[in-house]
Computed example of a mutant assay.
Amino acid sequence: MATEILLNVNGGEYRLAVDLRTTLLDALREQLDLTGTKKGCDLGQCGAYTVLMDGRRVLSCLILAVAAQGAEVTTIEGLAGEHDPLHPMQQAFLEQDAYQCGYCPPGQIISTIACVQEGHAGSADEIREYMSGNLCRCAAYPKIVAAVQQVKPLMEDR
């Protein structure tokens, strides 16, 4: 049975008809065609599906789309400003070569932004601990930490 919901995603409002069991991840990917957020383990363990909801990182594979009503959801596609081609963290990932295959970076980037915004980027050890829920099969972890350390001063000035 489908129900109509209103989602606020990347600054836009979208009216969707979803099954009550539809995850936020599936609504984003299948109905809004926002495929930057990847589908990984569907168990909340890999981090590939991480998005921001009201500025905090959430596991979109474990949240029902109906539960996201009224919240502002930000996906990798919605990070850059209107006049900026990339968010500073996206730019740092490029500059630090903090990606390999391209599968996990969307979730990694979202989580690193939350890491800084939530005050968990005080040291390399703290960054690694906070980011432990995001897996990278290519082992780009040292470069991801370097990207966070590069951007932290810029984000704190925003």
Rank of each mutant, 00 (worst) to 15 (best):
L6F: 03
C46A: 10
D54L: 06
L64P: 05
K152T: 12
C101W: 05
A71D: 10
T75H: 02
L28C: 05
D97M: 10
L59C: 08
D97K: 15
E82H: 04
A139C: 09
G107K: 00
V51E: 06
A17P: 01
C138T: 10
R15L: 14
M89N: 07
I144M: 11
V148D: 07
Q69K: 07
E118R: 03
Q96H: 11
L59F: 12
Q31E: 14
A48R: 04
T75A: 03
E156V: 06
L135I: 14
A67E: 12
M89D: 06
M1A: 14
R158S: 13
S123A: 12
L25G: 06
R15G: 13
T50M: 12
G107E: 04
E126A: 15
I144Y: 01
L62G: 02
V58R: 13
A2Q: 10
G44R: 00
I110S: 00
G47W: 00
Q149D: 08
R29Q: 04
R137P: 12
A80M: 04
V66E: 15
R21I: 08
G47V: 05
F93A: 13
V148G: 03
Y99F: 15
G119F: 02
S132M: 04
E126M: 08
T3Y: 00
G55T: 02
P153H: 03
H83Y: 13
L16C: 06
D97V: 04
E77A: 05
V18G: 07
A80V: 02
P88D: 09
I144L: 03
Q31L: 12
M53E: 04
A17M: 09
A17F: 09
I127T: 07
M89W: 09
E72G: 06
C41E: 09
A67M: 13
A48F: 01
V73R: 01
V116A: 08
F93P: 06
D125E: 14
R158P: 07
L25F: 04
A2T: 14
Q108T: 11
E156W: 07
Y14T: 03
T35C: 03
G119M: 00
A147N: 10
V145I: 14
A114L: 07
D125M: 01
G133R: 00
A27N: 01
P85K: 11
Q69D: 11
I144S: 00
I63L: 13
A92V: 10
Q149M: 14
G70P: 08
Y99G: 04
P88S: 07
V51S: 07
L28T: 07
A48P: 03
E126N: 09
R15Q: 15
G133S: 06
Q108F: 10
Q91S: 15
G81R: 13
D157V: 12
I110T: 14
Y130L: 00
L6T: 15
A17W: 00
G81I: 10
Q69Y: 05
T74Y: 02
T112H: 01
D26Q: 15
M53A: 11
Y103K: 04
D84G: 03
F93G: 11
G44P: 06
A65K: 02
D54G: 09
K38P: 02
K152D: 15
Q45A: 10
N10Y: 00
Q150G: 03
L94N: 13
I76H: 01
Y130E: 03
H83R: 14
K152H: 12
A146Q: 14
L86Q: 08
A146T: 07
R57S: 08
T74C: 04
G12L: 10
